[in-house]
Write a protein that binds this DNA or RNA. Structure first.
Lengths: 174, 174
DNA sequence: GGATAATTGAGACTGAGTTGCAACTAGGAA
DNA sequence: TTCCTAGTTGCAACTCAGTCTCAATTATCC
């Protein structure tokens, strides 16, 4: 089933409406390969002439997650990212602490071990997060890429230029 | 080596000072079993008559982590927790989405798989996070404990009473 | 007993995400 | 097609964990 149709189905099943904004967001999400965050998405929407507020975006993303079209990757540094899930199955991530690159890996063996552990502890698993932190090939050689872990990672994304300027909400300060 | 001595060694090696506040924090940390967060720690310190500011606590915790005495557990819901590491080795966590209970598990097999994956992708691992979300035995039977995952977990800790009142910093709003 | 570099507390600030509210709109009923 | 209404939107204020600045204080070296 095409993504738009699948989303429409999800919406109507939940008595939700297919709005112009939701259509624009879905279209944009479908056009991206790899991982993206809210600011990426918002910037792209603006560039393509759609006005969608930050609040609406934050309200729509969980709908897309629930409909199974995208997946939320809760980055350990606190910044959430998303990725298209259509035609893919579960995988986990390796995050470069220097350049922010995200690599993917999957391991049925780890999944099996998890299930074992849960069975032993009578824990009902509903999800999991497995992230490996470190340095990708291109960053590993760099001298400065040392001793950054466990003392506050400076993963790329924090330094994205212009992200703040695009914020919708105002600040209270002087 | 006793913890206090180990911390003193770490401090002097890094040209840092052993202050009254750091001593109080360490003493408190050593007295806890299980996981704790900044608010827990701050509340206990206040109760035991020590005035240590939130800022100082946030500045000291990374020192304790670097000295190897405690370990930071970056919870996927964004709230960091800590745990004493003395005499323990690496393990990962299962978090109950309903009551916030944290169970521990260790799996050398998973560690081995991780290393394999990294070797294959030429990724230099410096750390990892592996968390299983779900419901513990006592919560798993509860009807309301359904469909909470992946749409914003309401893990306990958000609802901790009095946490806000203990904050040091002021709010800007009316 | 200084000198001085590290440390502290208070509170302003940051940044991701949430919420209340009035105006707007999708889409089923008439 | 028009009407009705529950769902949606944008805005701005707010929340919350964590960081930063700065003047005053203090542990440690000499």
């Amino acid at each position: 089933m095409p993504a738009i149709e699948r989303f429409a189905k999800y919406l109507s099943e939940n008595r939700l409406k297919m709005t112009r904004e939701r259509r624009a967001i879905l279209a944009d999400v479908l056009s991206v390969r790899g991982h993206f965050d809210v600011d990426d998405l918002l910037a792209r929407l603006r560039r393509s002439g759609h006005h969608v507020s930050r609040a609406t975006l934050y309200r729509t993303l969980p709908r897309l997650v629930e409909s199974g079209l995208i997946h939320k990757v809760e980055m350990v540094d606190g910044q959430a990212r998303y990725e298209l899930m259509i035609g893919r199955h579960h995988h986990d991530h390796m995050v470069c602490l220097r350049c922010g690159t995200i690599l993917e890996f999957e391991s049925p063996e780890v999944e099996r071990i998890q299930e074992d552990v849960c069975r032993r502890k009578k824990f009902v698993m509903t999800g999991h997060t497995h992230q490996i932190r470190g340095y990708c090939v291109s960053c590993a050689g760099d001298d400065r890429a040392r001793a950054l872990d466990s003392r506050g990672s400076n993963v790329a994304g924090r330094s994205r230029a212009g992200a703040g300027g695009a914020r919708a909400g105002g600040r209270t300060g002087p």
